[in-house]
Each structure stands twice: as structure tokens, then as C-alpha cells.
């Protein structure tokens, strides 16, 4: 199995930093995405979490069950947060 190389890890870190700054900017400029800001922010958070799970924790080369368990947790959290946000504040 190929472990994550330092070069790959730095690439993932650059993605994480860029995604963090973008979602921070989106949240501070609510007019840009409007009511969809929360959806965008949580989607970016899930992508960031997935990157940490697959590349920093190296679960992309771990037994499939571990990868599935962590990915399900990540998307379930983001999905529930967005669903409950939408049902209260609403997107329409």
C-alpha cells in the first residue's frame, strides 16, 4: 500500500487552508451566497473532514470498513446539520 507522501500531505494541507479561508469569507459575506451560505459552509466542512480522514489519517489505504465508518460519520454530521438548519431557518 502506498502511504501518503510528504508532497501529497502538503497538497492536502493547501486544500484545507484554501477551503477554510473560502468558507470563512463566505460566512462573513453572507450576501454572496445568501441563504445557501450555511449549506456551502457545511459542504466545504465535509470535504475538509473527508480530506483529513483519507489523507492525514491515511484511511484511504486502510481496510474499507474503517474508511466507510468515518466517511459515513462525516457526511451524516454535515447532512443532519444542514437538514436541521434548513427545517428551521429554511432555504426558501
Amino acid at each position: 500500500m502506498n502511504h501518503v507522501s510528504p508532497r501529497q500531505a502538503v497538497g492536502v494541507w493547501l486544500f484545507l487552508v484554501t477551503a477554510t479561508l473560502c468558507s470563512g469569507w463566505l460566512a462573513e459575506h453572507h450576501g454572496f451566497a445568501g441563504r445557501w451560505t450555511a449549506v456551502a459552509v457545511m459542504f466545504v466542512a465535509a470535504l475538509k473532514g473527508r480530506a483529513v480522514i483519507l489523507y492525514f489519517m491515511e484511511l484511504k489505504v486502510a481496510p474499507r470498513a474503517w474508511r466507510i465508518a468515518f466517511e459515513v460519520w462525516m457526511w451524516l454530521c454535515a447532512g443532519l446539520i444542514v437538514a436541521l438548519w434548513a427545517s428551521s431557518s429554511g432555504v426558501a
Binding site: S23, G24, A27, E28, H30, T37, A38, V41, M42, V44, A45, K48, G49, V52, I53, F56, M57, M74, C77, A78, I81, W85, S89
Partner: peptide, 24 residues
């Protein structure tokens, strides 16, 4: 290392949920 990444992973959810969901 895995434990330390968990600390990071949790903050990735906690931060937007507490700080960014509402209009600012």
C-alpha cells in the same frame, strides 16, 4: 497521530456549526 487528527476533525465540524451557520 490518529488521535491528534481526531481533534482536528471534530473542530472542522464544531467551528462552522457554532460560528458560521447564522447570518452575520
Amino acid at each position: 497521530g490518529l488521535y491528534w487528527h481526531m481533534v482536528d476533525l471534530l473542530w472542522i465540524v464544531i467551528f462552522p456549526m457554532l460560528y458560521l451557520l447564522g447570518p452575520r
